[in-house]
Simulated scan of single mutants.
Amino acid sequence: MQVIQLHHPYRPDDIIDESIVLALGFFDGVHLGHQAVIQRAQQEAQLRGIKLAVMTFNQHPKIIYSNIDSQSVKYLSTTDRKLELFEGLGVDVTYLIDYTLDFGMQSPQSFVDEYIVGLKAEVVVAGFDYTYGKKDIANMQTLEGHAKGRFDIIEISELTMHEHKVGSTSIKDLLTHGNLEEANQQLGYIYQTSGYVVPGDQRGRDMGYPTANVKTNPQELLPSIGVYSVEIHVDGQWHQGMASIGYNVTFEGIRDLRCEVNIFDFDRDIYGQQVQIRWHHYLRPEIKFASAEALIEQLQQDEVDSRHFFTEPNY
Rank of each mutant, 00 (worst) to 15 (best):
D235F: 07
F310E: 04
F151V: 08
L52H: 07
M242H: 00
Q186T: 06
K135Q: 14
F26T: 10
F86V: 05
H239V: 02
Q240F: 04
E44W: 09
S70M: 11
E286G: 08
T78F: 14
G49L: 10
V124R: 02
L221W: 03
G145V: 03
M161C: 11
A53N: 09
T211K: 01
G49C: 11
A53V: 08
N248L: 09
Q219A: 14
Q39F: 09
Q5V: 11
F266V: 02
K215D: 07
V230S: 00
D92Q: 10
T78N: 13
Y65G: 03
Y130F: 13
G226R: 10
R11V: 06
L22H: 12
W238V: 10
S229P: 02
R203P: 00
A45D: 09
F27P: 01
H281L: 02
E163W: 06
V230R: 00
N314K: 11
L299C: 00
G241E: 02
E144D: 14
I116R: 09
E252T: 12
E144Y: 12
G127I: 10
Q276F: 11
T176V: 13
A138P: 01
A36G: 03
T142R: 11
G167N: 06
E293H: 08
N67H: 15
P285Q: 11
T160G: 08
G149P: 07
E312P: 01
A294E: 10
F310G: 09
T216G: 04
G178I: 06
Y282V: 01
V54Q: 09
D305V: 00
A23C: 15
V166G: 02
F26C: 06
R11K: 15
Y95N: 08
M161S: 14
G208W: 00
G29K: 11
I263W: 00
K62D: 10
A290E: 14
Y271R: 06
T250W: 06
T250C: 04
V73D: 07
H8F: 12
L295N: 01
A290V: 09
S77C: 13
I154M: 12
V234N: 01
E155R: 15
G104R: 10
S157E: 14
C259I: 04
K135P: 01
E158Q: 15
I15N: 08
K148E: 15
F57C: 02
I270W: 08
R150W: 04
V214E: 01
N314V: 04
A292Q: 08
F103G: 05
I153F: 13
L221T: 02
Q39G: 01
A36W: 05
K135M: 13
G149W: 09
A147W: 13
V198G: 05
S224N: 13
H34F: 10
I287Y: 09
Q46M: 12
D269F: 14
F151P: 03
M161V: 07
V166P: 01
P9I: 11
E18L: 08
P218M: 07
E144N: 11
N262H: 15
G200P: 05
V3P: 03
M140G: 05
V166H: 05
K148Y: 02
D265F: 02
E84R: 13
